[in-house]
């Protein structure tokens, strides 16, 4: 790897990813940016949206942009943990049991429709997301480095689905809600090439080592007290808000700051700005705070972001 300045490298990764995403799916900047932040900050991504708006396509594009091992798990209610992690099978040729690695042993894992699977399988996935390792038959096996889970969820369907618990949502650094594309983007979609064909043209823009090095740099991004105070103020505001049943936890705040560090690194900065936090407040926090009425907390969180004063 050449010792290019971090700013240029982060910027080139960003440009490449944006180019790839732009070529395949018509996603707005507000969607793409949190995805990029998650990628460089080292977290997992949850894409929420109705079927048919390109969630899976988006996830596949991201996966293909990273030159690593890619696996896809289509969750259904009969997927068992062993299907995900792998299991020991009898090898007659060897005359003994041998462990066959499941689809989790990859760098980028696309977990499609996670709300369709049973809580047991989901918890297995969550453990893998949390620790970067799986425990099979008493052995702990390291997953790929980097390990990135891109999960999709379809909140509109209820038949044959399981509710994803709050703790599970907390494992995702960023949750992005996808909506119908705007008219221009959709028209361009109709007129354009087939998505699969476009996806075939995608070239990786970053390899695993580069991504790990980038993540090391993101770790080094500084958060000064004034910025941390801003994060604290907003987190406090979520806890004090009467309409919220559950405010943001310290872990939520840390995840938020991590994502913000990713944004700072992508911007070529060695320090986080309140702007980074503001930009990522909804993707990083909206799935971690819960309204009393069960509705999505995003609009309320948006109000809080607009009202919480930024420490100068």
């Amino acid at each position: 790897m050449t010792a290019l300045p971090r700013t240029v490298r982060a910027a080139s990764v960003r440009a490449g990813l944006e180019r790839n995403l732009g070529a395949v799916v018509a996603a707005p900047e507000a969607v793409i940016e949190p995805i990029l932040c998650t990628l460089v900050a080292g977290g997992h991504l949850l894409l929420d949206g109705i079927p048919g708006i390109g969630k899976t396509l988006l996830a596949r594009t991201i996966a293909q942009s990273v030159a690593g091992e890619f696996r896809r798990i289509q969750f259904t209610n009969d997927v068992m943990p062993g299907d995900v992690t792998g299991s020991a099978v009898w090898r007659p040729d060897l005359g003994r049991f041998a462990f066959v690695r499941g689809p989790l042993f990859a760098n980028v894992v696309l977990a499609d429709e996670i709300n369709r699977t049973s809580p047991r399988t989901l918890s297995c996935l969550l453990e893998a997301m949390e620790s970067g390792a799986v425990s099979v038959e008493g052995r702990t096996l390291e997953l790929g480095r980097p390990f990135l889970v891109l999960a999709t969820r379809n909140p509109a369907e209820f038949a044959g689905t399981f509710a994803v618990p709050e703790a599970a949502l907390d494992r995702f650094l960023v949750r992005i809600g996808l909506d119908y594309p705007d008219a221009a983007a959709e028209l361009a979609l109709y007129a354009g090439q087939d998505a699969e064909a476009r996806l075939a043209t995608i070239r990786p823009v970053v390899d695993c080592d580069q991504l790990l090095a980038l993540r090391a740099e993101v770790e080094a991004v500084q958060v000064r007290p004034a910025v941390a105070e801003y994060a604290y103020r907003l987190v406090q505001a979520t806890r004090a808000h009467p309409e919220l049943r559950l405010g943001a936890s310290p872990r939520a705040a840390l995840a938020w700051l991590r994502a913000a560090k990713g944004r700072a690194a992508l911007d070529g900065r060695g320090y986080v700005l309140p702007d980074d936090l503001k930009a990522l407040a909804l993707p990083a926090l909206a799935h971690r705070v819960f309204r009393r009425d069960g509705a999505t907390a995003a609009p309320l969180l948006g109000d809080l972001v607009g009202a919480t004063p930024v420490p100068l």
Partner: peptide, 15 residues
């Protein structure tokens, strides 16, 4: 040792 990367990461990184 890549000092810049080391300083950022907090752990020694070498070229």
């Amino acid at each position: 040792v890549h000092w810049r990367a080391t300083a950022r990461r907090g752990a020694p990184i070498v070229k």
